[in-house]
Simulated assay, not measured.
Amino acid sequence: MKQTAPPLRRGWTTGSCATAAAKAAWLVLQGHEPPATVWITLPSGKNVTFSLCQYSGTPDAPCAAVIKDAGDDPDITHGAMVRCTVRAGVAGSGIVFKAGPGVGTITRPGLPLPPGEPAINPTPRAMIRTALTQANHGLTPDVEVTISIDNGQELAQRTLNGRLGIVGGLSILGTTGIVMPFSCSAWIESIHRGVDVARAEGLHHVLAATGNVSEKAGQALYGLPDVALIEMGDFAGGLLKYIRHHPVPRLSLAGGIAKMTKLGQGCLDLHSSRSRADMFALAQLAAQHGAPDGLPGLIQTCPTVAEAFLLTSNHNFPLGNLIAHKAWDVAHHTLHPAAVELDVLVFDRAGTLVGKADGPLPL
Score class of each variant (00 low, 15 high):
Val96Leu: 12
Thr105Lys: 14
Ala99Arg: 02
Asn121His: 00
Val103Lys: 12
Ala91Asn: 01
Gly104Met: 06
Ser93Tyr: 00
Gly89Ala: 02
Pro101Leu: 15
Leu113Ala: 10
Gly100Glu: 11
Val90His: 10
Gly94Ile: 06
Gly92Met: 05
Pro101Asp: 13
Thr107Met: 11
Gly110Asp: 11
Ala91Trp: 00
Thr107Ile: 11
Gly94Trp: 01
Val103Leu: 14
Ser93Ala: 14
Val90Gly: 01
Thr107Tyr: 05
Val103Cys: 07
Ala88Ser: 09
Ala91Ile: 02
Val90Asn: 06
Ala91Val: 05
Ala88Pro: 00
Gly100Gln: 07
Ala88Lys: 13
Thr107Phe: 10
Pro112Trp: 02
Pro109Gln: 15
Phe97Arg: 03
Ile106Gln: 04
Ile95Tyr: 01
Gly102Ala: 14
Gly102Arg: 06
Phe97Cys: 07
Pro114Arg: 10
Pro115Glu: 10
Lys98Ser: 12
Leu111Met: 11
Gly89His: 02
Gly100Tyr: 07
Leu111Gln: 08
Pro114Asp: 06
Lys98Val: 14
Pro114Trp: 04
Gly89Ser: 02
Gly110Phe: 02
Ser93Phe: 01
Thr107Asp: 07
Gly104Ser: 09
Ser93Leu: 01
Ile120Gly: 04
Ser93Gly: 07
Lys98Pro: 02
Pro115Phe: 00
Glu117Val: 00
Ser93Thr: 03
Gly110Tyr: 11
Ile95Gln: 09
Val90Ser: 08
Val96Ala: 14
Gly104Cys: 08
Pro118Asp: 05
Ala91Phe: 00
Phe97Ser: 08
Pro118Phe: 04
Ala88Asn: 01
Val96Phe: 01
Pro118His: 05
Thr105Glu: 12
Ala88Arg: 15
Gly89Val: 01
Gly104Trp: 12
Ile95Thr: 05
Ile120Cys: 05
Gly92Val: 07
Pro109Leu: 03
Ile95Phe: 04
Val103Trp: 12
Ile106His: 09
Pro101Lys: 12
Gly94Cys: 09
Ala88Cys: 05
Arg108Asp: 10
Ala91Pro: 00
Gly104Asn: 07
Ile106Gly: 05
Thr105Tyr: 05
Ala119Asp: 00
Ala91Arg: 05
Ala119Tyr: 00
Gly104Val: 10
Leu113His: 04
Ser93Cys: 15
Pro112Ser: 13
Thr105Gln: 13
Pro112Ile: 03
Ile106Tyr: 08
Leu111Ser: 09
Gly104Ile: 09
Pro118Thr: 06
Ala88Val: 05
Leu113Tyr: 03
Ala99His: 10
Ile106Lys: 06
Ala119Thr: 00
Gly110Asn: 10
Pro115Leu: 03
Gly116Asp: 03
Gly100Asn: 10
Val96Glu: 15
Val90Trp: 01
Ala88Leu: 04
Gly92Leu: 01
Ile120Thr: 03
